[in-house]
Simulated scan of single mutants.
Amino acid sequence: MNDSKIYVGKSAEYLNVSIDTLRRWDKSGKLPANKSRGGQRWYLKKDLDLFKFGVFELAKQWVTGTAQEPHPEFYCPTTTEFKGRLSKLQFALEKLEEYKDTYSLVVAITGEIGNNSYDHNLGNWPDIQGAFFAFDIDKKQIALADRGLGVFRTLKRIKPEIANDKTALNIAFTEIISGRAPESRGNGLKFVRRVVLDNRFKLEFFSGNASAIIDGINDTTKFNDSETCYSGCVALINF
């Protein structure tokens, strides 16, 4: 993604819609356009990508694509940037009445997943350090991703008997593992799972060749093989 300006004709072509549709979306606020002094409407490439793909797809594209930093709006190279963006999420949620009872929990599990990216990859980033962090309040979605070691390689350092990514995710989300980092990964994700189930949220978490789908509405936790291999971790929180 980049900050290049794309005018309305090319934007309509990129989104595979008509110019009239873009005008309606601009007027309704669904996809607001920027306007030049001369009245020409244009969009930033990153905004079109976000609208077209959504936060989760952009996170997955970053993890599975070539090694390059994501757009600065979504990139948190260190915990300082991550905590700053987490504060923005909290501010956006706490002022909305519908989240008055749950915003602190949404922020807590987002912080837990995001902090894992830094805690368990410090000094061991395979290529791009830091995390992807984007949220869409209207769609009630938060996407997090890193290009780190992943859950399997992290836990295998203390549980060498772990055989595969799916087993590693199962352990991380369901077993209490005492001790210091990297063991704390298991404890933190168990907390995340409990919050998701207790509050009817949904979490989709991918690492390596496996996924964990935790569905609070149906009170289920499923660990599956994934057709796509994710070098680090990718998560989508629906709240």
Rank of each mutant, 00 (worst) to 15 (best):
T167N: 15
T221L: 10
V8M: 09
A181C: 12
C233S: 08
N209M: 02
A168R: 09
F223Y: 13
K10G: 02
L122C: 07
P77I: 14
K100G: 03
D198G: 06
H120F: 13
L169V: 01
V8I: 10
I109V: 15
L169I: 01
C233E: 05
E175W: 10
L58R: 02
F56R: 06
Y75Q: 01
T66S: 15
K95G: 04
A92E: 12
R157I: 07
K156H: 02
K46A: 13
G39P: 01
F191A: 13
R157Q: 13
Y7H: 04
Q40G: 08
G38T: 01
L58D: 00
T174V: 05
T167E: 15
T228R: 13
F133G: 05
N121M: 10
F53A: 08
K52R: 08
F56C: 04
G186Q: 05
F206C: 10
N116P: 05
T64N: 11
P72I: 08
R153G: 00
I158T: 03
S184E: 15
K159M: 02
P72Y: 10
D138T: 09
K202H: 12
T110N: 14
A181Q: 15
D136L: 00
N121H: 08
T221S: 14
G208W: 05
D47F: 12
F51V: 03
S36T: 15
T64W: 09
P160L: 05
T220A: 10
I6W: 09
Y99D: 00
K46G: 03
G39K: 04
S231R: 13
L96S: 02
Q40W: 15
R24G: 09
K139S: 07
Q68A: 13
P126Y: 11
F205K: 09
K139T: 05
Y118A: 03
T174D: 10
K35V: 05
Q68K: 15
T78K: 14
V151K: 10
N115I: 02
V106N: 02
K30H: 04
E204D: 04
S117Y: 09
F133Y: 11
N34D: 01
L149C: 01
I137Q: 05
E94I: 05
R41P: 02
F51H: 13
A131L: 08
R200Y: 04
D49Q: 12
D20K: 10
K159N: 00
Y43D: 00
F132A: 00
K27A: 13
L122S: 12
Y103D: 05
R147W: 11
T66L: 15
M1C: 06
K46D: 07
K100R: 14
R41Q: 06
